[in-house]
Amino acid sequence: MSQGRILIVEDDRDSAEVIEAYLRREGFVTEHAVDGHSALERHARWRPDLVLLDIMLPGLDGNAVLGAIRRHAPTPVIMLTAVGQESNRISALLYGADDYVVKPYNPGEVVARVHAVLRRWRGNTLAQKPGLRHGPLVVDLDAAMAWIDAGNGAQAALDLTRTEFSLLCMLMAAPSKMFSRAALLGTCMPESDAMERSIDAHIHNLRRKLELAGVTGVVVTVRGQGYRFRNPT
């Protein structure tokens, strides 16, 4: 039985072939794209379960590809980058990446990250409640979906990454409780070796998407400590 479909976007064919071999050995089905434009075409046509995306690509770079994916689908994305500076890693997270791996990497580690991200995406509900609600903001934990209830049966889905969805669930499930960055990182990105400050990037993206949907001021910064969800009134 297939573990899922993985789209590998990597212009280095040798590296891509190695990762493909490891993933197929684990039961994944793979496709390979060598540039950003073909990656978007394959993503639209094939609908992979996860994308492994190199940042340094000819033509359309990885961040641009990630941005285009995020405008149309919540597909989990792991960035592959040779750039080790923390600022570039945070930049990738700001664009909506679920995780990143810095080159040179062990292919076995990449496969482990794939399993971890898919496990979070498919199964981590963070709470036992079937649903959460704050005003027009509604979260269905079983379906792993969030949307805005505009009334009269009208709904507008929120296009959240798995990490953003997990953060929203964790905060909404305990309104007014302050969560440290370490707690949020450990629960929402348990397999990641990202620094605690990377949570700020995901919170930034989550807030932006909520604000664009008309939900403002619900994710509150506790200065020097972490974040909490505004206590419903």
Rank of each mutant, 00 (worst) to 15 (best):
P48T: 06
R208P: 00
L52D: 05
N205I: 12
F165R: 13
T233R: 14
V29E: 15
R25N: 08
S166Q: 06
A143M: 15
L52C: 04
F229H: 06
N88E: 06
L171G: 01
A112Y: 09
P48E: 13
S198H: 11
D140A: 09
T30N: 02
S198E: 10
L210A: 10
M195Y: 14
V9Q: 03
R207C: 07
D200G: 11
G108Q: 01
V219I: 08
S180E: 07
R70Y: 07
G4M: 04
D159V: 10
T30P: 02
L66V: 11
V219T: 00
A144M: 10
G67W: 07
S87E: 09
V102D: 07
W121V: 09
V215E: 02
Y95I: 05
N231C: 13
D11I: 03
H134M: 02
A16V: 05
S87M: 03
H37Q: 14
V18S: 06
P76G: 12
G123E: 09
E41K: 13
T233P: 13
P107Q: 04
R42H: 08
D49N: 15
A182G: 13
A82E: 08
P104A: 08
E41C: 04
I6T: 00
V101I: 11
L23P: 02
E191T: 08
G96K: 11
I203Y: 09
A97D: 04
L167Q: 12
V111L: 04
L184Y: 06
W121C: 04
Y95W: 07
L168E: 06
H72D: 12
G123T: 10
S166G: 08
M56F: 01
K103S: 05
R5L: 08
V101F: 00
E196R: 15
R45T: 12
V117K: 03
R42V: 02
T81R: 03
V222Q: 14
V18K: 10
G153Q: 05
I203M: 12
G131L: 05
A157Y: 10
T163D: 01
A174K: 11
Y227W: 08
E109G: 12
A21F: 10
H202F: 13
D159N: 15
N124G: 02
L206N: 07
A174T: 08
S192D: 09
V218F: 07
P175D: 10
L210C: 12
A146L: 03
G224R: 15
Q3Y: 10
S2D: 12
Q3L: 14
F229C: 06
R5N: 13
A146I: 01
A92D: 03
G36C: 08
